[in-house]
Design a protein around this nucleic acid. Sequence first.
DNA 1: TTAGGGTTAG
Length: 713
Amino acid sequence: MALLCASTSPTISIPHPLLSPLKPPATFLCHSSSSKTSAATASSPTADQTPSSSSSLSDQLLPLSLTLLTSQPTSPSATVAPPPRLPAKPTWTNPSKPRPTVLALRRQSRRPFSHNPSLRPLTELSRTLRLSPDLPSALAAAFPPGHSPSRDDALLLLNSLRSWQKSLQFLDFLRSLPDFPLDTIFYNVVLKSLRAGHQWHHVERLAGEMIDASVPLDNITYSTIITAAKRCRRFDGALHWFERMYRTGLMPDEVTYSAVLDVYARLGRREEVVTLYERACAGGWRPDAVAFSVLGKMFGEAGDYDGIRYVLKEMKELGVKPNAVVYNTLIQATGKAGKPGLARSLFEEMVAAGVSPNEKTLTSLIKIYGKARWSRDALELWERMKSKGWPVDFILYNTLLSMCADLGLEDEAEKLFEDMRRPDRYARPDSWSYTAMINIYGSGGKPDRAVKMFEEMLEKGVEPNVMSCTCLIRCLGKAGRIGDAVRVFETAMERGIRPDDRLCGCLLSVAALCEEGGETDMVLGCLEKANDRLVGLLKMLRDEQVGFGEIKDEFRGIMNEAAVEVRRPFCNCLIDVCRNQGHPSRRANELLRLGNLYGLYPGLHARTPEEWSLNLRSLSVGAAKTAFEEWMRSLWGSVVEQEEEALPLSFSVCTGSGTHKFSQGLATSFTSHLSKLAAPFRQVDEKSGSFVASKEDLVLWLRSTFSPAFVNA
DNA sequence: TTAGGGTTAG
C-alpha cells in the first residue's frame, strides 16, 4: 500500500474545474478568467486553463477545503488517520453566484433497450458464438459479405460473449464491416468485458483507440475504465482517467463520482474523499446509498468511529434510507472501529426497518461478536438465524466455526459441523471448516480428535491448506508428538502446499518445545525447507563466536522479509528456543533488545510517579522471563548506584489473564516462575494476570538475590 | 447478465 500511495501521488497539472473552470458555473475561484472560459473547447485546452502551479489534486483542492468546507484548516499531507471534518456544513459565502459543482447533477441517460422481433434465431446464434472455438470464422460464416448484422443485433451478440478475448475479436469483426456505426456503446461493452477479465493493459489500449478514432468517451466509459483500474489495483490509472475527464470538459455524474470516491478511499486519502464529498453536496448533489457505503467502509478501515457516526447522521439528515449493502458496510465498519455495541444496535435497527439481513450481514456480525468475545450474543444470533430462516452459506458456517474455535465452544462447533455434514446441506465442510475443527481440538488438548479430523478431510477429498496443516502441527507439537508433527509437515510438502510465515512461526514454536537433540533437529530440518534463513540465524545464535553485530544484521534481514504480523511471534519463539535449547545465555537478552529496537514490543515498560510497570501481554513465556530478568537487573542497577530515591513506591507486572478458554496462560507459567525466584510480586486479587510488589519488599529481595557485581555482568 | 458505482472468512 505504501508503494501504491507513493506512485499515485505524482504531481498532476490539470485544468480542474474547481480551480480553472472550463464551464461558466465554476467561475468563483478565477474571477478574471470568466470571459475566457466560454472559448474553451473539450479537445484542446488552452494554456490559460492550466493551473498556475503544478500540484497534486489534493493540493489543488486544499484552498477549497479551507475556504468553503471547514472551519478548521487541516494539513493536506496528513496521512495518519486525519480526523474527518465532521459537522462543518459547507457555508456558501456568496449566494449571489451560482453554486459551482464538481459533478453533473443528472445521471447520464441510457438509450432504451430496443426489442428485436427476431430474438429467437439471435439467441441461438449468440450461443453458437459463445461456444465457438474460432470466433472469427464463425462470424464470417454467420455474416457473409453483404449481410452485416444490424446495430442492435451486434450489440446483443457482443453482450453475450462472456470472454474478453472474444469481445476484442468481435470488435475487430465489426471494424472490418463497411460503414458499421461503431459508437461509444460498443466500446463500453468491450471495456466491461475486459474489466471482467482483469485486462487493464487492454482497457487502456482500447480507450486510447477511442480517442484516436474520435469516438466520444462518456460517463459510462469513464466509470467502466475507473472500476477496471480498481479491480486491477491500478489506482494511479483510475485517478489518471478521472482527471482526464475534467481536462476534456466532461463532468462526472454521480456514478463516476462515487467510483472515484472509492478510489481515494482505498488509497487511504480520506481528506480528499471528505473534500470531494462535501464539495459535491455544496453543488446540490444528494448522495445515494452507494456513496454512503463508500464513506462508511472508508471510515471503518481507518477505525474512525466519529466518521461512521457522521455517515449515519448525514443519511438521516438527507433522508437516505440505508439498504442492506449500506447496513452491511456500516456494521462491518463499526466492528473494525472496535464498537461491537454499535454494530449490534445497527443490526437491530436494520431488522426493525424491515431490511432483511443476508449472509454477509450475519457473517460480519458473528465475526464481530467473536472478536469481542460475546459468545452469548453470537449463539443467540445463531438461534435467531435458524428460527427466522435467514440465509446461510458456507462462509457464514465457517465464520461461526472459527468463532467457536476462538471462544473454545467445542460442543457448539460440533453441532454446527454435523449440520454441515448433513447430506441435504449445500454448505459442505471445506478446508476452512476442517481447519476450525482441528483448531478447536488442538486448543482443547485433544490431538487424537484433531488428527482424526485431518484424516477425514483427506478421505473426503478436501484438499488441506497451509492453515489446516499449521494448526495440526501446532497441536501435535504441544502434545509432544514431534514425529507426528513432522509427518504432517511432510504430507503438506508432498501435496504442494507452500509454507508461509505462520507455518514457519509454528515450527519455531515447536522447536522451542522440543527436547534437545534429535527432536529439535527433525523440526529444524522441516523449518530449513520452509525458511532456511531462520535456521541459519539459530545456528549463529548457538555459536559462541558470533558477535551481536552479525546477529543484528541477520535478524533485521529476516524480519524485513517476514509479514508484519509474524515478526513478534518470530522474536518470541527465537528467545524461547535460545532459553530452552542451551544456547549461550546472553542470546535471549540480545534478541529481546533487538525486538525492542525494531519496535516489536511497544509499551513493554510504563512509568508513573507512583508506579513502574512491565506489560508482558504480547510476550511468550521465555521472552516474558527474559524481560522480567532484565527489568530486575536494571532496578538492581539503580539500587547499586544509590539511586533508590528515584524509585516509585510500587511495581507491577501484567501478563494478562488469557481470556481464551484453552490458552496455556502466561499468567500460570509466570506465577510459578515468580515463586521459584521467591520474588515479592503478589497476584492482585481482583485482577488475574496482574502482579504487584512494594518498593520496600522489592529492594530487600534484590539485595538478597543479586551480588553487587551482578549489575555489570 | 443485457453499456457504468458500494458489502462476507484464519
